[in-house]
Nucleic acid binder design. Structure first.
Lengths: 119, 119
DNA sequence: AAAGCATGTAAGAATTCTCTTACATAGATG
DNA sequence: CATCTATGTAAGAGAATTCTTACATGCTTT
């Protein structure tokens, strides 16, 4: 087995990190159904400065979770929810085949407990 | 609408943050199908010290993503994949009703573009 | 062109993360 | 009981995160 972490990951780091912040998740919700301008979004977070929101939007954009469309004076953000697929895939990987793997797991556990550990 | 971020979140911060690291995702994969001892897990990451892995396991445990069962000299870790449900729920929330909301989105966009922005 | 909006960027402070090495604790074993 | 083994914790260094306030840039409108 190679390094267990070096599989299909890479961008999932950025996506999961982007999701690990309430402000950014709130932003994603706000742009899920349609474009919204940056200032419009910033106004939805009264307890935070506008640049802070702008920086959160940058994190989301670098993670591929929002698109930007310049429009006149504004910049319209929209969710690109396909970017969430990589995290979803990981969760699915953790959930899928759970039953199918149980017998293998039982064997592994038995091997470990009797042959090596011996509770 | 209240603050867009203050919904059912809270613990999702910790879970998403736990997922935003390749080592921790690798650990989760290793304990998905059965218990494994801490040292066993640490050995799977040759480029990292054992305490570092131990600290990653603590992060996973605090996020509710692994359980710990002391067994003799060892501590056996196992994935608690239910903890992933909160992140999954967010992704689902971002994906669900996507079509149903498109007409509402179109109205919103039209209202914004003509009545306020006017490209 | 001048003035005004909408927005991003820079710089820096306070905090948090993630390692490393050294030490502490607790069960196992001779 | 003395010692090993498995493991967690402490302390601290270096990097990253996340704010804030100032400033830069670029449409837009008069």
């Amino acid at each position: 087995m190679l390094s267990p972490a070096a599989q299909g990951d890479e961008r999932i780091d950025a996506v999961a990190h982007a999701l690990a912040d309430g402000t950014r998740r709130g932003l994603l919700r706000l742009v899920r159904d349609g474009e919204r301008a940056a200032g419009d979004l910033a106004a939805a977070f009264p307890g935070m400065s506008r640049p802070a929101v702008s920086q959160h939007l940058r994190v989301l954009h670098e993670a591929g979770l929002v698109s930007i469309r310049p429009n006149g004076n504004h910049r319209l953000y929209r969710a690109r929810t396909e970017g969430l697929a990589e995290v979803w895939r990981f969760i699915d990987e953790m959930w899928a085949d759970r039953l199918a793997r149980l017998k293998q797991a039982a064997e592994q556990a038995a091997r470990r407990e009797s042959g090596h550990d011996g509770e």
